[in-house]
């Protein structure tokens, strides 16, 4: 069973074009990010950014290795707790606490990957789902760290490098933007490296990659661990900026949410997941005061995406550019 997610017919022209489009979109996004707190509510943008990073990290697995993980909430949540705990009880500065969250996320990712990586497709999805459910129950029980259903409350924002207080909303905002951009650049680098090329070749044709002498399982495991670690950084940053970590972050529904974000924005595109995440977070905010049943609306979007809109927003946009070129 081979897993394919090519969103455009694989031709170099469209590929390069899509790359160029991504660059332009990226530049616009950066400017928008810097100006955003003057137009939008900063707390909202920060949350959207954390989820955008989460979705991009998730997409590293789904879009570029072709493995659907249904357990990424475990990394996100575990890291949110780890970061919050380190900042609150060990007095770690925010950047160290977030790094610690990344390490914890990556650690869980390595364990999950070690168990699940030999399986593909649906098997992989179900195994990661079951494992993440296990982590959820652990989080529910180690109340000393997680606070159980009360959540880990009152996480201090602390001083960046021990110097700049993040209590200032704008300092916090630009800190989150910086974390996002650095991690996003890192993901871009992975995707466009020889390592990334091997990953894509595994996605396109795994037996071929094996016959070329690549240790496919090892590549997948490294990619999975990286994805989990980046997810952890997203979770940690969320925990610092929203100042709490709770069971919501670690519940399996969160894994479903990140899949929706990625699907909606465009699987296998670089900026797609970020766009999707922003949309989903805005939608949740909007639905909160609209009186519409949230779960149902999210479900309908899921179904529509899968049935009619599989390339996602950015994928459709790239395809549109590709068509115009020809």
């Amino acid at each position: 069973m081979s897993v394919k997610y090519s969103t455009t017919p694989s031709g170099t022209v469209t590929g390069r074009l899509a790359g160029k489009a991504s660059l332009i979109i990226g530049a616009i996004l950066i400017v928008a990010l810097l100006a955003a707190p003057y137009v939008l509510y900063p707390a909202f943008v920060m949350k959207a950014l954390c989820f955008a990073l989460f979705a991009c990290a998730f997409n590293l697995m789904l879009g570029f290795v072709g493995l659907l993980s249904f357990g990424h909430a475990a990394f996100f949540g575990a890291a949110a707790y780890a970061t919050g705990y380190a900042a609150k009880f060990w007095g770690l500065t925010p950047e160290l606490a977030i790094l610690f969250g990344g390490v914890v996320g990556g650690g869980f990712g390595f364990i999950f990957g070690w168990v699940a990586i030999r399986r593909q497709g649906i098997y992989f999805a179900m195994i990661t789902l079951a494992l993440s459910q296990m982590v959820f129950f652990l989080a529910l029980q180690v109340t000393g760290i997680t606070g159980g259903e009360d959540g880990l409350q009152g996480v201090p924002r602390g001083d960046f490098l021990g110097l700049i207080s993040l209590e200032d909303p704008l300092a916090m905002y630009y800190f989150v933007v910086a974390v996002f951009l650095v991690c996003f650049a890192f993901i871009w680098r992975i995707v466009n490296s020889p390592f990334g090329a091997v990953l894509k070749s595994i996605r396109e044709n795994e037996p071929r990659a094996i016959s070329l002498g690549y240790n496919v399982d090892r590549f997948k495991l490294i990619a999975f661990t990286l994805s989990a670690a980046l997810t952890g950084i997203a979770g940690g940053t969320k925990s610092i900026s929203v100042q709490l970590a709770s069971l919501t972050d670690i519940q399996w529904q969160m894994s479903g949410e990140v899949i929706l974000m990625t699907l909606l924005g465009g699987v296998g595109t670089l900026v797609g997941p970020a766009v999707g995440a922003t949309l989903v977070v805005s939608l949740e905010n909007f639905l909160a005061t609209s009186g519409l049943p949230v779960t149902t609306v999210i479900g309908v979007i899921f179904v529509v995406c899968v049935l009619a809109f599989r390339r996602g927003i950015v994928g459709e946009f790239n395809a549109f550019l590709g068509r115009r070129k020809h």
């Binding site: 659907l68 479903g256 899949i259 779960t295 149902t296 979007i301 995406c305 899968v306």
Partner: peptide
């Protein structure tokens, strides 16, 4: 899998 997940949510 994703489609049926959406149906479940609905």
């Amino acid at each position: 899998l994703l489609f049926t997940f959406g149906i479940a949510l609905i």
